[in-house]
């Protein structure tokens, strides 16, 4: 498949070509890539793209996948509705 037609992050509608361009600019950690193009910042919390990005980075940096640092896993693990967290205030 063509890099410009391969979607890496569905929530943010990012293609492989776009992600590769950000890496080529010199952003070589997942934390930076997330912040530049919002990769993995959507509601699925990176469940697809974070499985792919380490491979892409490893290929571009010519290293093993285990050398790529995964981002901090930030709570809450599943998107929770505010009213479920807010207790009484959310009921009204």
């Amino acid at each position: 498949m063509e890099p410009q037609n391969t979607i890496i992050c569905r929530c943010e509608d990012l293609t492989l070509a776009e992600v590769e361009e950000v890496i080529a600019e010199g952003y070589t950690t997942i934390e930076e890539i997330k912040r530049i193009c919002r990769l993995g910042m959507g509601p699925c919390r990176g469940s697809t793209c974070l499985q792919l990005i380490d491979r892409i980075l490893a290929r571009q940096r010519n290293c093993g996948r285990e050398e790529i640092k995964m981002p901090t896993n930030r709570p809450p693990l599943e998107g929770i509705k505010m009213k479920e967290l807010a207790g009484d205030a959310g009921e009204k």
Binding site: P75, K81, M82, K83, L85
Partner: peptide, 29 residues
């Protein structure tokens, strides 16, 4: 990140800006 923040924050927001209570929290840091 703390659980206390998540509870207190959502309580404050739900009271002042009620429709926001239907939103899902995606991340905290």
């Amino acid at each position: 990140s703390s659980w206390h923040f998540l509870e207190e924050m959502t309580r404050k927001a739900a009271r002042l800006l009620p429709p926001l209570k239907h939103l899902r929290v995606i991340r905290q840091w």
